[in-house]
Design a protein around this nucleic acid. Structure first.
Lengths: 116, 116
DNA sequence: CCTAATCGTTTCGGAGCCGTTTTATTTAAC
DNA sequence: GTTAAATAAAACGGCTCCGAAACGATTAGG
């Protein structure tokens, strides 16, 4: 566990990273889309529409639409589960992994630059 | 400066806080609105529409609309600058300060719980 | 004065996301 | 085999946001 963050540092970190994301503009992901993206890339697969909806506390169509958008951006891909063809499993992509990695770099850089 | 964050920790932190914001649902602020809110509450006043637009790299109408929404939520207030009545200065509110403080608490809590 | 520049807002057409409801496909139950 | 349950997607109406352009109000320059 890292050293405790002070309130000013925590807010400064969130501000700086958010500002970077807004300025770069590439992402343009909503909070839900960001939550879906990071869940898919950080938590253990498999990820289904239903599971993601439950985890985020939103409806399934919201997840489907988020996956539509993110699929269009190449950040994730969808495939029918061969075992149970009702399910759709969400899978990672190279572009998605790169985007997540870049986000991690931004967070680390901004965290490193936090004032004492 | 806090101890260095590892990539996994940085992404886990962003994921956990984002998930909290999505699940609570209260905020529902876009990335731009979040950037405006934190800029107003963390950086030195005065804050003008033009200055915020330049800082965030977006158009002025986008800032005006963000301030409309956030004003409706009671998170900020606007007043004409008496010195130069063309300018509008964005000011803090009690509700806005509380919302920012709660966000800081979430970031701190999630940071504290990061795995080694 | 009077023109030009600055500032914030409003308007406009277009695009995206929301929740609810409906549809289609697939699996489970009996 | 037929019906019921589960899953994701599509359709629908409503709401918000976007950038560009046009618009008033205010100030600065000559």
């Amino acid at each position: 566990m890292p050293a405790e963050l002070r309130p000013t540092q925590a807010l400064r970190l969130w501000h700086d990273v958010t500002l970077d994301l807004v300025r770069d503009g590439e992402h343009d992901l909503s909070a839900r889309q960001m939550a879906v993206l990071l869940t898919v890339y950080l938590e253990m697969p498999p990820h289904t529409v239903r599971g993601l909806a439950a985890k985020l506390g939103v409806t399934k169509p919201a997840i489907t639409r988020a996956l539509d958008t993110m699929g269009r951006l190449g950040l994730v891909s969808r495939h029918r589960d061969p075992k149970d063809r009702r399910n759709v499993v969400v899978q990672r992509t190279v572009a998605g992994a790169l985007a997540v990695e870049r986000l991690g770099d931004v967070v680390i850089a901004r965290h490193r630059e936090l004032p004492l």
